[in-house]
């Protein structure tokens, strides 16, 4: 057995880092989704008739049966909260000043769910199964990004 180090802080270490930068191609399907979102504020999905399953965002292919799909189904803007979580820590475990809430929402017309922030859930505790609606950025501020969606808001609160 080798001797255990008594003072780990004093062990010699060599620092190293590596800049990682990429650009990602959303592809034909991703481009259709992001363009419709930016230009029309529409949320597009892809329907696989054989599987009776509607994807969101759009897909070029069905992961269930391998069929080729097209972008053509408009979804939402309302939907149902399938799950949510409240984050209290950041990327490396550091405490956050304000908790963040994320939700999985099955938009009306979709089978897949969309992941996004839940906006200011307020004092009423969120509940799985409740109705929410997509909140979009103002048209002139949209860039063709998933962040053109600001998040989901509880639908009842919207109609007050």
């Amino acid at each position: 057995m080798r001797e255990k180090v008594a003072r780990p802080d004093e062990v010699r270490r060599w620092p190293g880092d590596f800049p990682v930068a990429h650009r990602y191609t959303p592809g034909l399907a991703g481009d259709a989704f992001l363009t419709a979102l930016r230009d029309r504020g529409a949320i597009l999905g892809s329907r696989c008739e054989r599987c009776a399953y509607t994807y969101v965002p759009t897909r070029l292919f069905c992961e269930r049966c391998f069929a080729e799909l097209d972008a053509g189904v408009e979804l939402g803007p309302e939907g149902t909260l399938v799950s949510f979580t409240i984050g209290f820590v950041g990327l490396e475990g550091e405490p956050l000043d304000r908790p963040v809430t994320l939700g999985l929402v099955r938009l009306d017309g979709a089978d897949a769910v969309l992941l996004h922030h839940v906006l200011d859930p307020g004092d009423e505790p969120l509940e799985i199964g409740e109705r929410v609606a997509v909140v979009l950025r103002a048209p002139e501020e949209r860039t063709g990004s998933i962040l053109d969606i600001l998040g989901f808001a509880v639908a009842e609160a919207e109609s007050d």
């Binding site: 990429h22 990602y24 959303p26 991703g30 992001l34 965002p57 799950s83 949510f84 979580t85 409240i86 984050g87 820590v89 950041g90 990327l91 963040v100 994320l102 999985l104 992941l115 996004h116 922030h117 990004s145 998933i146 962040l147």
Partner: peptide
């Protein structure tokens, strides 16, 4: 990178949701 990472949350969020 296109649809999830821009939300800026750790992968741990996936465990909370699940």
């Amino acid at each position: 990178p296109v649809f999830n990472r821009p939300l800026g949350v750790p992968a741990l969020a996936v465990a909370g949701l699940d």
